[in-house]
Design a protein around this nucleic acid. Structure first.
Length: 578
RNA sequence: GGUCCCGUAGCUCAGUCGGAUAGAGCAUCAGUUUCCUAAACUGAGGGUCACAGGUUCGAAUCCUGUCGGGGCCGCCA
């Protein structure tokens, strides 16, 4: 159950009833009415701003209107006390039975507690990583990968129909560079001395297996061919092997996207040409020249006529070229075709997870979707992830610009494990830069949030295990009225907020809120645990009181569900022991 | 020049479609610590929410402007 969603409904009904009583002819706009937990526990359990946002519609001062709504609310069977406070807040104090129902619903729903139908089955496409298929993923890809994956899972659990997607940039010049680099490794595998890899080509060792595979499959045959003949062969083998490598990297982080979409396929199927024809038919394409950029004008700037998309009609700052001056397609052209393809597949939300250096893309992506689907028909949501800075015990990890010495995603995951990487990448909002210290994130102390949250979950498991060893199991019909301590009540309140948290995180596309919530819940739980030191009657296992013990075990199980459900959305495996 | 993001406690950061007395961790200080799982616990001090206007019953949050930090800015990918 979603306590706050339920009470929002109750409050809306009370407002409607009050409106009828006051003789209002039109029903008031309830969209701004909220039901939320007050910051101060002293203000009650559920608070609403209804009287303040509706006072104009009713033509009454907020506190007078609050009286009328409060009168309706106090008749509700779950409401113990109704207060009117401050400028017109209506604060509800709920009967204890409500909290017992919350816990009972957590236990009944288990893994499903927190799921909702907020999305209403809306088709959403989450595109993330989309790194060029020219080598293994590096540390710069980690954050977007984790963020995209967690956001996708969050949307799935809040009722969206989600596709996780990776766009393969396999049509540009960089895959030809890859092919030439791999060809050198092929010669090397045949025993030739290739010396230093020339600058402009990829020098990484990860291309050696590609060379070996080519040598094994073709022997010396490719050497007889001209570049025009061997390049497509080498390119396709190299790209296939690079994509396999990338998928392995992603798998190491427990990321499995269901669609890997090829840019090249858009050209092969004629979709790029068809897209431009469509835009032209709609009158969004013209021949023209772009003004030079302000500020630093390139020295070799010259005006050239190109085929342009009228992006400025849809909110972009500048029109965007579809065809270069020599008539070939721009990268942007296949981007537009890709958007068109997604729209044709029925997605209503196109979500892009990009690096912060792609901030300039937001407007053009929005413009493209608006031009192709009509304004307001498809939502484009771009989340930019800021850089991750690596540290080792406080010292920045130096990355040589010299190619081949970058830190790979695999280096990071292999050193600290996928769970630590995933949690830490989400323990900061996406648009803020993030420091990642190898020493701190593996530290076993309360200063390390990953450990702190994992340990809370492990602790619940541990107590349940210990109790089971003594034949004590969670009660089938727990009497939650026995949980009267302030710390216990606080945890119950926090648990009650979980479904609301998931909905607001999904609506804002901000999975990091879940990580912070889990950190807070873990803190509440550890605090309750520690209270048992001074107050033995607060411990979970009390030999002399089986009834209370089994009730507390059921409570513990509810806490565990919430912790594990939150961790599952983040893609972090809950530890059962540490 | 344009555009996007950021600016909250000494430090690192949260802050709910605008809500009541702005929170957490670290650090500092004062106590506690033979305890179901050890990897500590309890408490205290610490704020002009960059600045100035505006909208609102109400602004850290929305709008405008200024200052400061960063990213991006022709046909590259």
């Amino acid at each position: 159950m979603n306590l706050f969603a339920e009470f929002l409904q109750v409050i809306r009904e009370a407002v409607t009833a009050a409106a009828a009583e006051q003789g209002l002819t039109t029903s008031p706009d309830l969209s701004r009415v909220t039901a939320e937990p007050p910051r101060e526990a002293a203000h009650g359990d559920v608070s609403t701003n209804a009287a303040m946002v509706l006072n104009k519609a009713f033509g009454k001062p907020p506190r007078v209107l609050a009286e009328a709504i409060a009168a309706k609310l106090s008749a509700h069977p779950d409401v113990a006390v109704v207060d009117i406070a401050g400028p017109g807040f209506i604060n509800l104090r709920l009967k204890p039975v409500v909290w017992r129902r919350v816990l009972a619903s957590v236990l009944a729903l288990g893994d499903g507690y927190g799921r909702s139908r907020l999305g209403g089955g809306k088709k959403a496409n989450v595109e993330y990583v989309s790194a060029n298929p020219t080598g293994p993923l590096h540390v710069g890809h980690v954050r977007g990968a984790v963020f995209g994956d967690a956001l996708a899972q969050l949307l799935i659990e809040t009722g969206y129909d989600v596709t996780r997607e990776y766009y393969i940039n396999d049509a540009g010049a960089q895959v030809d560079v890859l092919a030439r680099s791999a060809y050198l490794r092929y010669l090397e595998a045949l025993g030739e001395d290739i010396g230093e890899i020339p600058s402009g080509l990829y020098p990484g060792d990860y291309l050696k297996p590609v060379g070996e595979a080519l040598a094994k499959q073709y022997g010396p045959d490719l050497k007889q061919k001209s570049e025009a003949d061997w390049l497509p062969i080498v390119r396709s083998t190299a790209m296939e092997m690079m994509m396999a490598l990338i998928r392995e990297d992603l798998a190491a982080l427990n990321i499995r996207q269901e669609v890997f979409f090829s840019e090249k396929s858009l050209h092969d199927t004629g979709e790029v040409a068809a897209t431009i024809a469509d835009l032209r038919a709609m009158g969004h394409v013209y021949q023209g020249t772009l003004p030079p950029p302000k500020g630093d004008v390139p020295e070799d700037w010259e005006d050239r006529e190109q085929t342009l998309f009228r992006a400025t009609d849809f909110g972009d700052d500048i029109d965007r070229p579809l065809l270069k001056s020599d008539g070939s397609y721009t990268y942007f052209a296949s981007d537009v075709a890709y958007s068109r393809n997604k729209i044709a597949r029925g997605y209503k939300e196109l979500i892009y997870i990009l690096g912060a250096d792609h901030g300039g893309y937001v407007k053009r992506l929005e413009a493209v979707a608006a031009a192709l689907a009509g304004k307001g028909n498809v939502d484009v949501i771009v989340r930019l992830c800021q850089l991750v800075k690596l540290f080792r015990a406080g010292e920045p990890v130096r990355m040589s610009k010299r190619a081949g010495e970058f830190v790979t995603l695999r280096d990071v995951v292999d050193e600290v494990g996928p769970d630590v990487v995933r949690f830490m990448m989400l323990f900061r909002k996406n648009e803020a830069p993030l420091d990642f210290d190898f020493a701190k994130v593996t530290e076993q102390s309360k200063d390390n949030p990953v450990f702190y949250v994992q340990y809370a979950h492990a602790r619940t498991c541990s107590v349940l295990r210990n109790a089971a060893a003594e034949g004590l199991l969670p009660a089938e019909a727990p009497d939650f009225s026995l949980l009267t301590d302030e710390a216990e009540q606080g945890i119950i309140r926090r648990i009650a907020e979980f479904p609301r948290l998931l909905e607001s995180s999904a609506a804002a596309h901000e999975p990091h809120r879940i990580a912070f919530y889990l950190f807070d819940l873990a803190g509440d739980f550890h605090a309750l645990w520690n209270k048992g030191k001074d107050s033995p009657q607060l411990r979970f296992i009390l030999q002399e009181d089986v009834n209370l013990t089994t009730t507390r075990l059921a409570f513990l199980r509810a806490i565990r569900y919430v912790l594990s459900n939150g961790l599952r959305i983040l893609g972090v495996r809950p530890a059962e022991e540490m």
